[in-house]
Each structure stands twice: as structure tokens, then as C-alpha cells.
Design a protein around this nucleic acid. Structure first.
Length: 397
DNA sequence: GACGCGAGCAACATGTGTAG
DNA sequence: CTACACATGTTGCTCGCGTC
């Protein structure tokens, strides 16, 4: 008689927790003709399986499944049961006989087995990551060991492939409950979008995503939600700046759908950065695209370094031109002098700070690269015909 | 008292006409 | 495209005044 369907049914009862509704563990063992008494669960997951399986025929999927099962059989000497939890994910229910069931010993033994499985799978050309639940001697609690093994692998999104994860009970730290990004960081990002600073936006966004990844290390969905929230805020700025709302929102919906199905941090980061770069392009001055390429380069440099003093000489050097020629070329291409243009983008950013923060005029001046708040007020009045304080009051009314 | 604003001043940076 | 010379603009500082 083929024993496999019985093993599968028995394993399913154990990892789903429904065994308690059927009968006692020993009675079911006897009924199914099974002699294994599993006490822990490992989850063997094929790395990047959704990507690899895309467009592959059924025969390929069957073959890779058989290779994983064979790798597990070659690696484990202890009695075990196995069941495919989902495509590309094999749950192994293992009977460990630990003489001294101390935590360290348990970890060393399970890690050793996991390494063997990885080696055998690797020799067959398949890369796997393995999650391991905490030791549960009671077979009625095996479903929790299975849940832990699965949950322990959430780190794979951030850390990469071919890893072994032991479930650690450090989920209850409350760092993730606090909002991980300060409002200043968020505002700085959105202010950069507002002035069409593509490079600066993407660089800052990368840093913020790394920060979010640290805070939400054990909760990928929270991490993804926070990033999507950032992208939505950026989208609002882009639409406010005059981009076509219907087109942007339609692109957004497709983008976000694809984002949630992304299974690796590096790919996720690249997708987000490429999309935000595309969004920021719509805020960029359209005349820049028809400008001399060096002037476009200069403007991007100016925007990226707006929070400090940027001189004509510095930007001319950056473009490898003499100060004299650069100054003339800049005016010819932008119909604005260097300082005039710089002040305009500084004021554009300052307007955003005045509208959305409670920074003092001095703080706003510092944030947009004016060393002197008095001079900032003078320039503000020159371009806007009002003082920063009056502008803020009018906006709040 | 803290903050915002305007004015005046000196030093420095930038803009521009011109020549090469 | 560079360089010079001169005019003009920008910047940093101080001081005084008004408002909250």
C-alpha cells in the first residue's frame, strides 16, 4: 500500500492544528499506520520561486519539487514527515531525539540539518532558505512550530537568499509601533519632489527605506505599507504641481499592485526608486530637457545641494567650464541669471516649508540654503511681494 | 524675552561689455 | 571659449523697532 497519502493527511492535521478535532495523537498514528512522533517543523522554501516559476511548464515545477524532496531525504537521518505547504515551500515535520534539550543544543542540531539540506539542494542547482520553529515537544502544538518557521523567514525579504532562520521571540519590541520617520524627514523628501529634485529625492528615499527596513525588520507588510504611503504622498505633490491626475493615479495603481508581490528587498527598492524618479520627472522644469545638457546637469546639482551655499564658481567647476562662460551659457539657456535661478528654486522649497511646517522663518531660511534670515526675507519680498510670515498667515486662512 | 522685519555698511561674488 | 575690468548684486553683520 502506498503510505504517502496517509503521511500527507496526517501531516496536514498536525500543521493545521485540526488534529485536536479528530482524535488523540497516538490513536491517529495507529489509524494512519505512522510511527513518527514529530516535535519540530522546518520550512524549506525555494529562493525567488515566484520569479523562477514564471512561464515555466508543469514538468519543470514537478522536477524542481522532486529535487527538493530528494535533498531533504538525503540530508535527514531522523524520522520525519513532509508536506507541500504551498508551491515551492515544503514543510518538514521532524522527530528530534535531543538528549539534552537545551536551547543551544537544539539550535546547533537543527542548523546542522538545515545546512545539509541546503548543500544537497545546491548540488542539484536549487537555492533554498530554511525557517525553523522553536522546540515543541508536544505534537498538539506543532502548528505553532510551523507558523514560527514560516514567520522566521520574513527576514529573507531584507537579507537575501540561501539563509537559515531560527524563530526568535523578539517581535514584541515596540519600535515598530512608533512612527519610524520623523515629520522633518518626510517633509524634506516632499520638498525635494516639489522642486523637481530627482536625484535628491531618490537618494533621500533610499535612506528612508533603509531606515524603515530596520524598524520593520520583522514585519514586511508594515514596511511595504509605509513605503506605499510615502509614494502616495509624493504622488499628491506631483499632481498638485500640475501633472495629469488620471494618468498618474492609474500608473500608481499598477505600480502598487506590483510592489506588494515583490519578494526581494533589492528589487523592491529598485522598483520604488525607478517609479519615484519617473514621478519626479513630471515636476522637473520641462524647459530643462531642451537646454544645453551641461545646464541641465548644473540645475540638478544646484537642486541636490540646495541646503547649503552653492556658488557660481563651484557649479561652473562641476560642469568643467570657466566661470565666465558658464555664467553666460546659464543665462542664455534658462533666461535667468545663476543667482536668480538659485533663489527661485530656494523660494519654491521655502514656500513648501512655510505651508506645511511650523518652522520659524530663520529655520526655513537655513533649510533652503540662506545663511542669513534677513537676506531670505529681503529676497522673499522681492519675488513674492510679501514677507514669509504674511505668506504663511494668508495660506493658513 | 523671543521673534520677525527693515536699514545701513563693508566685503565678497556675480554679471556684463569688450578684446583676444 | 577665455580673460580682464568695472558695475552691480549678494551676503553677513549689527542695530533698532514693532508685535506677540
Amino acid at each position: 500500500m502506498d503510505q504517502e497519502p496517509y503521511n500527507t493527511a496526517f501531516s496536514h492535521l498536525l500543521i493545521s492544528g485540526t488534529v485536536v478535532h479528530e482524535a488523540g495523537f497516538e490513536d491517529l498514528q495507529h489509524k494512519f499506520g505512522i510511527h513518527v512522533r514529530p516535535n519540530t517543523v522546518m520550512v524549506v522554501s525555494i529562493d525567488r520561486y515566484p520569479d523562477l516559476a514564471l512561464g515555466k511548464p508543469l514538468a519543470w515545477r514537478m522536477l524542481i519539487g522532486r529535487q527538493i524532496v530528494q535533498s531533504v531525504q538525503d540530508s535527514i537521518k531522523e524520522p520525519f514527515l513532509r508536506i507541500w505547504a504551498e508551491e515551492g515551500v515544503l514543510a518538514v515535520l521532524l522527530e528530534l531525539s535531543l538528549e539534552h534539550p537545551l536551547e543551544k543544543n537544539y539550535e546547533a542540531v537543527t542548523r546542522n540539518i538545515a545546512r545539509k539540506i541546503q548543500r544537497h539542494a545546491s548540488s542539484r542547482g536549487v537555492s533554498v532558505s530554511i525557517g525553523i520553529g522553536t522546540y515543541c515537544d508536544n505534537p498538539y502544538l506543532l502548528q505553532y512550530s510551523y507558523e514560527e518557521a514560516k514567520e522566521s523567514m520574513v527576514d529573507r525579504f531584507f537579507q537575501g537568499n540561501r539563509l537559515i532562520f531560527h524563530y526568535e521571540k523578539k517581535r514584541s519590541t515596540n519600535t515598530a509601533r512608533n512612527h519610524p520617520l520623523s515629520s522633518r524627514e518626510r517633509i524634506e523628501l516632499l520638498a525635494r519632489v516639489r522642486i523637481g529634485d530627482k536625484g535628491g529625492t531618490v537618494t533621500l528615499l533610499k535612506n528612508l527605506m533603509e531606515k524603515l527596513a530596520q524598524v520593520h525588520k520583522y514585519n514586511v507588510n508594515m514596511f511595504k505599507s509605509e513605503v506605499v504611503d510615502l509614494v502616495m504622498s509624493i504622488t499628491r505633490i506631483v499632481i498638485e504641481s500640475g501633472a495629469d491626475a488620471a494618468t498618474v493615479l492609474s500608473e500608481n495603481a499598477k505600480f502598487i499592485q506590483g510592489l506588494y508581490s515583490t519578494i526581494r528587498y533589492d528589487k523592491f527598492e529598485k522598483k520604488v526608486c525607478d517609479y519615484v524618479d519617473h514621478l519626479a520627472t513630471q515636476v522637473e522644469d520641462p524647459e530643462l530637457s531642451s537646454c544645453h545638457p551641461l545646464i541641465g546637469q548644473a540645475v540638478r546639482y544646484m537642486k541636490e545641494n540646495l541646503d547649503r551655499a552653492v556658488s557660481l564658481r563651484e557649479v561652473a567647476q562641476y560642469c568643467c567650464l570657466s566661470v565666465y562662460y558658464f555664467s553666460r551659457l546659464f543665462k542664455k539657456e534658462t533666461r535667468c541669471s545663476f543667482v536668480d535661478y538659485l533663489n527661485k528654486i530656494r523660494l519654491e522649497k521655502a514656500l513648501y516649508y512655510l505651508e506645511t511646517t511650523d518652522f520659524t522663518v530663520q529655520q526655513v531660511a537655513m533649510h533652503v540654503g540662506f545663511q542669513d534670515a534677513n537676506y531670505f526675507s529681503r529676497i522673499f519680498k522681492k519675488y513674492m511681494n510679501t514677507t514669509p510670515t504674511e505668506y504663511r498667515k494668508a495660506k493658513l486662512c
